[in-house]
Design a protein around this nucleic acid. Structure first.
Lengths: 225, 225
DNA sequence: TTTAATTTCTGACATAATGTCAAAATATAC
DNA sequence: GTATATTTTGACATTATGTCAGAAATTAAA
């Protein structure tokens, strides 16, 4: 029906650069891009196969050649998000070095990624309410971090860097603090400023885990606007 | 189609006890109760006007005499939640007395309410992804607390009880910490144990606001199982 | 380049949900 | 018990989903 207004998202999907590029790969990428564009400026609930495919010039039924349903498409978009998030949070989980600085860097990176891809993240969350299968995928994405954070807290507790509380529920709560805060701050237009969000998350994580005496300890001020 | 399996929710709506009870009031209450029962053991996405009304014995179209749509019904259920939450969080916002103890009491009460009504809370959140108008109602419910928490933090900052950081973003983050943590812990079957959730939230709030030296300060151990 | 094989795309169909409305059924007031 | 007002219903128009057989196109082979 109506044209897709596009605030043009920063994410662009291109086919795998093999020698022979099958038409189907280009079409798949085109549909994914149409999805990103739509979801960048419209809520997931307004996405239908109709409006999506209209913006590609293909017929509605062509969609089903490539995706089982809209949640299946969102799963592909979520994969892109995952890579970005993993890249930026890795250091605190595995890394050696000052834990407070590593934590701050991870949080700063996370804020940056979620700022850049906020509306897509938001769609990835909204879609979870619409489909049981996809909901599990989304939950698993979040719960992965429960494990990683718990492990890191326990390790630092053994070092005497973090007080000896029950790590798992605190890890879960801090993880959900991040997810919901970032969704809310960057998942809609206009997005909030990233700096105050980073400041708040950093303050809460560090006060809770390492103690407020470490609040200022940062490697840099790299949070981009 | 299929019968509603009922783990029987603890919330029951009855008509206003005026002298003459109109049939319509009883019907409205019956529909609301059917909604609660459904949502207690099924995700909101599976709720249709059809299945809802089937469980009342009335025709599908009767629904529209009482509610604009399913989100309108959820708004009524949300009102019930609101009252319970307000009752329990009031003390920390307005109250005089030891702020740490009041905060702990509020959190304990909040955990208790959300434990008892978890699946309904969950539905109230899921429904927000399905409708623009209702989404605003839900967001406003959450954002009310942003204001209240910010005010309380600023007040305690003036007293020198809380360090002088930018109150608003921290308030927003702590609020979202609660919402998402409680949704996740109690919004599905089986619900998590309330105690560890309360312990984690209390630790995070108090470490962040008043400092970890106050962590043990409680009025009681009233969190029910 | 032409043709044959394969892949991709499309229109039509069956199904399920929504919301509306005039008419039927029921409740309430007198 | 009857008249009036309220409540309920079944039928309809609309919109979305997912499937499938056949049409169109791409690709591979000669």
């Amino acid at each position: 029906m109506s044209e897709i207004k596009t605030l043009s998202s920063p994410l662009r999907i291109s086919p795998q650069p093999t020698l022979k590029i099958r038409k189907s790969e280009r079409t798949r990428a085109a549909i994914l891009n149409a999805g990103v564009e739509f979801v960048w400026s419209h809520p997931f609930r307004d996405l239908t196969v109709n409006v999506l495919m209209a913006s590609t010039g293909l017929s509605r039924s062509a969609f089903y050649q490539y995706f089982k349903d809209l949640q299946d498409l969102m799963e592909s978009l979520l994969d892109l998000l995952k890579n970005e998030v993993y890249a930026v949070t890795g250091p605190w989980f595995e890394g050696t070095g000052d834990p407070v600085i590593l934590l701050n860097d991870s949080l700063a990176g996370l804020v940056d990624v979620c700022y850049r891809l906020g509306p897509i993240l938001r769609a990835a969350d909204d879609a979870a309410a619409t489909d049981e299968r996809y909901e599990k995928v989304w939950k698993q994405f979040i719960e992965q971090f429960d494990d990683a954070i718990t492990t890191r807290i326990k390790a630092d507790q053994e070092q005497g860097l973090i007080p000896n509380f029950d790590a798992r529920p605190v890890a879960e709560a801090l993880n959900r603090l991040d997810v919901f805060t970032l969704l809310d701050a960057f998942g809609q237009h206009p997005r909030k400023q990233p700096e105050p969000v980073y400041e708040a998350l950093s303050r809460i994580w560090i006060s809770t885990l390492y103690g407020s005496e470490w609040l200022g300890k940062r490697s840099s001020d790299l949070v981009r606007t």
